[in-house]
Simulated scan of single mutants.
Amino acid sequence: MGETNTKSAPLFHVRTEVRVSATPEEVYAVVSDMARASEWSVECLGGRWVSGEPATVGAVFRGDNRRGPDVVSWAPVVRGDWTTDSEVVAAEPGRVFGWAIRSKAGQAQDSVWTFEMAPAAGGCVLTHHFRMGEATEGIRGITADMSDDEKRRFFSEWGAKLEQDIAATLVRVKEVVETN
């Protein structure tokens, strides 16, 4: 099983949405404040901006993350605490905020997380989207010693995990925005 896919067949592509009783600008203010990510993210505990003007294209955020031992427990994924650097790749207030996970060398990878906001009656529709086209260095490391069957199992189970995480994140963002 190959470790990369074409743009037409990404390794992971997850997208879900929720209606939020707030303006797109109010939602954007929350999801673009990455230091507050612990309020809504399943794994990110927050972090800090390390370069660039915060929340603008090109800015880099170092996220502090935590994953429990039960997540795809048979696979050699990072567990416990770790950090990632992410580069903002989209920042249009009230419309879209997105970031790409960077490699250890500091290059944006084809692993992009995005929040999109669209006006709707009584507030907006918030869409959370994750797409990984080509395998990141992390995924390549996780799957390096796996058989083809293990890779298929990993991609299936990790995809299910991503779907659950994105859905939970949207519920949390909605709660944060609507209670502030």
Rank of each mutant, 00 (worst) to 15 (best):
M1C: 02
E3D: 10
T4R: 05
N5H: 13
S8E: 15
L11F: 02
F12T: 00
H13Y: 08
V14F: 09
R15H: 15
T16V: 02
E17G: 10
R19F: 13
P24Q: 07
E25S: 04
E25C: 02
E26A: 04
E26H: 12
E26R: 13
A29G: 05
A29E: 14
V30C: 05
V31Q: 06
D33Y: 11
D33S: 05
R36G: 05
R36I: 00
A37V: 02
S38K: 14
E39M: 10
E39Y: 11
E39C: 02
W40L: 00
W40T: 00
W40H: 13
W40A: 06
S41A: 06
V42T: 13
E43A: 04
C44F: 13
G47E: 06
W49H: 10
W49E: 00
V50S: 01
S51Y: 09
S51P: 07
E53A: 08
P54I: 07
A55Y: 09
V57M: 07
F61I: 00
R62S: 11
G63I: 00
G63V: 00
R66A: 09
D70E: 15
D70T: 06
P76A: 02
V77P: 06
R79H: 05
G80Q: 02
G80Y: 15
D81C: 06
D85C: 06
D85P: 09
V89L: 05
V89W: 05
A91Q: 12
E92T: 15
G94L: 06
G98V: 00
S103F: 02
A105S: 10
A108N: 03
A108T: 01
V112T: 00
W113L: 13
W113E: 07
E116N: 01
E116F: 10
M117N: 03
A118G: 01
A120H: 14
G122W: 15
G122F: 15
G122R: 09
G123E: 02
G123K: 08
H129K: 05
F130Q: 11
F130N: 03
F130I: 06
R131K: 14
R131W: 05
A135L: 05
T136L: 06
I139V: 03
I142Y: 13
A144G: 04
A144H: 13
M146F: 15
S147W: 09
D148A: 04
D148E: 14
E150W: 14
E150I: 03
K151E: 01
F154K: 07
F154W: 08
F155T: 04
W158N: 01
W158I: 02
E163I: 11
E163G: 11
A167F: 13
V171C: 04
R172E: 14
R172L: 12
V173I: 12
V173Y: 10
K174Y: 10
E175D: 15
V176D: 14
V176I: 09
V177L: 10
E178S: 01
T179M: 15
T179N: 13
